[in-house]
Amino acid sequence: MNTEAIWLFLSTQGVDFGLKVLGALVAWIVGRWLISITVRIFTGALERGKKIDATLSNYLRSILSVTLTIILALAVLGIFGVQTTSFAALLAGAGLAIGTAWGGLLTHFAAGVFMQVLRPFKVGDFVQVGGVTGTVQEIGLFGTTIITGDSVQTIVGNNKIFSDTIQNFSALPSRRVDCTAKVANSVDPLDAIARLKAAVAQIPNVVAAPAPDVEILSFTPEGPLLAVRPYAHTDHYWQVYFDTHRAIVATFGAAGYPVPETPVAPRNR
């Protein structure tokens, strides 16, 4: 090591270099302090708004913090005389390359942002999206997690959800439960309808308005096919569905209705 060269450097440029180091250190400390305040204010604004999902809020906060930190690092490099123009161009080029390579993920991210703004559904809703039916567990940055009826965790890309039909079964107060009941040709269908309307109305969690629908749906060789349609909140859909079938069996059994049978055509002799 050439001590003479070191001493020459310290005697001629040491003070200037020391001031630059001190200035860079002060700039970094003050800059980080300002960044923390900015991020805290930004986070507080998001929390007060209460319109952005927590996952998206954390991601936006991270983006802001990283962006401001990069700007601060470039400013510190500028104190030492480092040309940051080419460095910034390099970062921009890298960002463009990454954006092109990750184009598919970016479309899912953009769709997720629109979903947070438009809010077609929320966590806990029962939906059918992207060909998947179940309860929304999480709305992520790139995909939405759905728990299906058979307890399978399914993640659907946000872009697939947003570009397809969205059915939200929890958006309205009640939902129609579709069941059918067949009576024999010898049974008066109007009597069966009156009995079923009274029985279905007594099922727990069946709403009073709209009232249950019981009407003749079609005619079959065995007898009239009745549409039995009570209404219930989506949380009670399957309970009402199964209880309605039990009510049909109990009502027809108590009325002594015969079992519908297919008529047998007479044989030609």
Rank of each mutant, 00 (worst) to 15 (best):
H245V: 07
T262M: 11
F121G: 02
I70F: 13
S65V: 09
L217D: 04
W7H: 13
R176Q: 11
V123E: 05
N185L: 12
F17Y: 14
T262V: 12
G256P: 01
G93N: 11
V82D: 04
G131Y: 06
R269N: 12
P266A: 09
L34W: 11
E138C: 04
K122Q: 13
D191H: 10
A181N: 04
M115Q: 04
A181D: 05
E4N: 13
D213N: 08
S65D: 14
I146F: 01
R246D: 09
A171M: 07
R269P: 14
A192G: 03
V129F: 01
N2P: 04
I166L: 08
D235K: 00
A255Y: 08
T154N: 10
V264M: 03
T107V: 09
S186E: 06
L72N: 00
R61E: 12
F142T: 15
F80L: 05
I193M: 02
S36C: 05
S62G: 15
F242R: 13
V264E: 05
F142N: 14
I63P: 00
P230C: 00
I70W: 10
K197V: 06
V264H: 05
D243L: 08
T3A: 07
G93A: 15
A227V: 04
L196T: 07
A101G: 10
T107E: 13
S170D: 02
T67N: 13
L91F: 12
T244W: 00
A209F: 07
T133R: 15
V177W: 02
D188S: 11
A227F: 08
L19V: 10
L105Q: 15
V156E: 06
L118W: 10
T165K: 14
D188E: 07
V129G: 01
I6A: 13
V136H: 01
T100Q: 12
